[in-house]
Design a protein around this nucleic acid. Sequence first.
DNA 1: TTGTCTCCCCCAGGGAGACAA
DNA 2: TTGTCTCCCTGGGGGAGACAA
Lengths: 712, 712
Amino acid sequence: MGGVAESTERKRRIQTGLLPHSNQGEKDELYDELWHACAGPLVYIPRAGERVFYFPQGHMEQVEAYTSEDGIMEMPIYNLRSKILCKVVYVQLKAEANTDEVFAQITLLPVAEQDEPSSEDENDLSLPQRTGVCSFIKTLTTSDTSTHGGFSVPKRHATEFLPPLDTTQQTPAQELVAKDLHGYEWHFRHTYRGQPKRHLLTSGWSTFVTAKKLVVGDEFIFLRGENGQLRVGVRRAAKQLNSPSVSVISGYSMQHGILAGAFHAVSTGTMFTVYYHPWTSPSEFIIPFDQYMKSAENYYSIGTRFRMRFEGEECSEKRYMGTIVGNKDIDCIRWPGSEWRCLEVKWDATPDTFLHPERVSPWNIELIESTYKRSTSIISKQNRKRPVNPSLSECSCLSRDGLVQYPAEYTCSKHLRVFQGQDKRNTGAQELDAQTPEVLPHLAAPSNPNWGHRHLGLENQLCSPMHELSQCNSNNISYLSQNIAAPCPAYQWHPIITCDNVAASRNISVSNVTSSNSGYQECRASEMRDENEALLAPSTGCYRYRLFGVNLFNSYPELPSPQVATYCELSSPCSVPPKSQSSVCQTIQVSEPSKSISDVLLDKQCNNCSITNRSCTKVRKYGNALGRSVDLMRFDGYDELISELDHMFDFKGSLINGSSGWHVTFTDYEGDMMPIADYPWQEFCLMVRKMVIYPKEEIDRQNPGSPDPTPL
Amino acid sequence: MGGVAESTERKRRIQTGLLPHSNQGEKDELYDELWHACAGPLVYIPRAGERVFYFPQGHMEQVEAYTSEDGIMEMPIYNLRSKILCKVVYVQLKAEANTDEVFAQITLLPVAEQDEPSSEDENDLSLPQRTGVCSFIKTLTTSDTSTHGGFSVPKRHATEFLPPLDTTQQTPAQELVAKDLHGYEWHFRHTYRGQPKRHLLTSGWSTFVTAKKLVVGDEFIFLRGENGQLRVGVRRAAKQLNSPSVSVISGYSMQHGILAGAFHAVSTGTMFTVYYHPWTSPSEFIIPFDQYMKSAENYYSIGTRFRMRFEGEECSEKRYMGTIVGNKDIDCIRWPGSEWRCLEVKWDATPDTFLHPERVSPWNIELIESTYKRSTSIISKQNRKRPVNPSLSECSCLSRDGLVQYPAEYTCSKHLRVFQGQDKRNTGAQELDAQTPEVLPHLAAPSNPNWGHRHLGLENQLCSPMHELSQCNSNNISYLSQNIAAPCPAYQWHPIITCDNVAASRNISVSNVTSSNSGYQECRASEMRDENEALLAPSTGCYRYRLFGVNLFNSYPELPSPQVATYCELSSPCSVPPKSQSSVCQTIQVSEPSKSISDVLLDKQCNNCSITNRSCTKVRKYGNALGRSVDLMRFDGYDELISELDHMFDFKGSLINGSSGWHVTFTDYEGDMMPIADYPWQEFCLMVRKMVIYPKEEIDRQNPGSPDPTPL
DNA sequence: TTGTCTCCCCCAGGGAGACAA
DNA sequence: TTGTCTCCCTGGGGGAGACAA
């Protein structure tokens, strides 16, 4: 496609909003492809319009990688939620000028959780538009990086991706001009010479190597766009660049800035911008809404077995298994109830256990299910969960029209590489929802056990991982390198998987592993729910935040009455009465329609930490032993707060109209008590620690300076 | 001095605390020397223990230099003072790894303004300890930076600073090893060859040039310590490095971080750290207490003529003159009453006016006094004021025992360079105070019109700028370069001033300039006061905040009765009754002992901004139309404030003991009224906008949320 | 005295095929 | 097919004195 037709198609896409964060034409699409190629397949960047949860804790973790020294200072406590639902407003994919380190500048707009996203947005997001981009990656050899000679281009890559040479000449040569992520043009002389003949990049190559500071093991990325435009990029083997951060503000101020900035954005409903450096730290602090919600469906009890994906050497994927050994707040003071890295885990012994985090977030891991539904359900579940590294978990063939995915039920210890563009990470409900009836049967077909597979006749041997992987054995190491190629132009964006020395078809014996944890009955309701959804959900396109027609966030049952006993072990004492300790698992198993996920989340947060939950602010009425809690983020100002308090404490409107004789006071974190409404709402939200409703006489009686004199 | 003697002296200094921020021995002193040499003579860095004013606005300005894009977003309003008195806790002088850009990491501790600094601290600070460091600077020529050949060492520098060569050899050579600011060791081969013979740095030089990215016009700095240690550094001609700042947090978050971090530090009385990059922006946001206080003595009315020092090309100093054309807040919303760049100025026409800021802070400029005392008083005044660039304004000879200064009453348009270490910027009262009686006569000697001159027999022709400058004319351009040398080892730290093409002895015709502004009578009382102080001040060691024995901050005349009319033009309407618009000028001219500087400050600050003044706080008594003002800086806490208010409004003790039935309330800048003493005193000082004393009945009657319901 | 130029000459490194994995 | 080696050869640039400002 090109010329007029391409232009027309482009116009249509722009008009229909199908071109995310790109309004400069094909050039920028190619840029995005290059960026993702450089970032690596494990890196997920949300798209504009998407709804995500922003985790300030994770953001702080990443920023701390740039503040070596003074992270010891005690942070103040901001009244900031541990997770903030945001709409992605703008995404810019960039690269550091000096290091080519990719990073994303993401502008977020905090949104109320009850806002329903339009189904169109989500549909758009689930349909990444792919053009005829083809590319290859090669890990640099010693010779490639030596000062003598150039870069050896694998023959197939050269013939497929490089412009054809005039082979009639003795030593045919051409000049290639390719831009990098900074738009800088690199010139390479491409020749075909030697005995035997081979493709080489000679002149210009050493300049590139020097400028990019490439060493053995780094990767060279080459892209060719539809119209023949060339791009080059690098991925470094050693990701641990010592941050050459310019010393502008102290780490302490940075922490303040992130928290205060986010708080201000949340309070005022304005945008804020974060930078995400996937190479710097693995703190993925922006998690797609769906991914989070999926993980929230599971119950993460102590002893639960799980596995988690990591990026191994040379961009390969590894899965490690472990056991949950704890479930509690990482910082009970500042982030009570936070799910960020709330799971303490013990990893199964591996040669490189030291790499693994001792704490993970629920959405980082996949639980290992019980075995009896493994042939279909487990695969389905895995596809649906895809917690961290979705694209590497299966061999994907991306067509212009959608996503074709194959589950990869093996551990490819090395040399497995999938090169593809960014796909939709959470291909759970919304993708299922988008299924046309005729593809649903695929879900249960054992021989083709992928779900969401759009059967559009695009499959061929290049796209079949099982086919490709059958070529991979330890006998043909040098024949097929780990290089990845997207064939061009016949099949656009159908990655070729080539690998050597791979225990290719080795399946993880999930059933054995799981059954070894016989002491725990796994909560596995969500997968059943998935199936139910697939079968029962109306195809309205917006059921995701509803469960059987009940809006998950607007319904707020005061006292949910769990009708099944919980199987789930609790890791920490819970201050909530035990009867409310239900989980979504059972609730959904019995098709309890009044139990919403938000309820479950509330319960779970209470379980996670026995200290006060800062997302909610305690309110007490003078003389009443029983306190309540309100979430200030749900209110727009004092009026709404007072209205809620009026309702909560049964003032029947007299608190609102002032006739009650009671007044709301609050105590800030310094312990000073003040009448409410003295401060602007935002500041109040920042400083309030708890609220007490006093009768006026009591206020008059009190010494205003004495902190919190209320009897409990 | 060396060996045992040096070690003993070192030990003594460490014991007596005379070694600022250095406990690692001579190495670090040499480091500091190198740092300041690289930073340039205009750069002032406070010392640990010093009291300074921190201006968040200026800090924000500097940080904005690192945030190109998103500075447009509206900043929230923090309850932060425009200037924050701090004690310097810790200073680290550093350099950026990539660029060698010098910067200082300064840890500040907010302090209450009423805390008197101990005179010992200040004495220590005013006695920088100098060691036998000698050095030279050379601006690199084309040949120096070319790929062919090395660095040509001026002969005098080589003979004085480089280890002697064995001249009996045909081509004597030696290896020099010198560390840079990062501690990296550079090796240079030093030879003496060629026809005619000359000193050259050959091997190693081009590596240095390449690594430091030196170009023609950059400067090479060479230091030699007492014990022969060598150091090298660079200063770049092009200071405008495009900030290669790593994208970690958004500029918006940085702004939040600076304000929230400072606010948190002030609120909790904890330290905070700032980074000051003198090369990046001229926003000197940390100003010594004394410098600020000196500037606060002047009255900056519209039409006032002033001059200001700038760094010209190649580190020369230029003075430009201008006229104050406005005096108002740069940001009335966020920083009401701030003096940061509160002066709008119009610069006299110069070829490079574009360089000049349209707004300056009072402490940046020196007012041009009336002429009749120019021969002595003006010089004295200049020495005392030294608003921005103290070290360049005179040729300084620093001995181990003190500071010898010569006023420089000329404009050195180019090529004037003074190379010296950091000296005490504010050599005002405390230096005078340190005078021993026998040096006082120097103060009035017309032929030696410097004050604070320690007559220690160290003067010699090398130290006399007038002598040196007599060599400087346009005829010997190539004979004396602009290179600066500190001769070694005979005279330690007595800079040689060598220059060419300098209009050396050209005096600014201050009298003419000033008289051209005939419409304004300049306030010039402070210089008279200086003289009075010099002659009359008792040598008690702590008179700085006293005037004629009256403590300037503790005395507070109830109703100063100005006995002379004011000469000062007011630039903006003043809400204070005219009768209180006296100034220090008249007061001191008539030797009014009861008029304190703080009173003057009160009056003046009221004039500075037609909006509420944050340094003095208005107080009204309910029902009284006539308000008062108090300077909260004078109080240690609420008790003292209430005591003062009791006295001020004639409560005769009943406000103190609570029997009056009246209560002091205050209004913050948001317009919210609260009872006094709800907040810790420091926070109260930060947020108070005005105070009102109410009868209790009135407080009870009022809706606490309504802003300032008091009738005027 | 020192900035610039030119000349000399070395060697780092680009560019080629040989060779082997 | 392609990684590595070695050989060839060129040019950038280090290093010297010449020369002039």
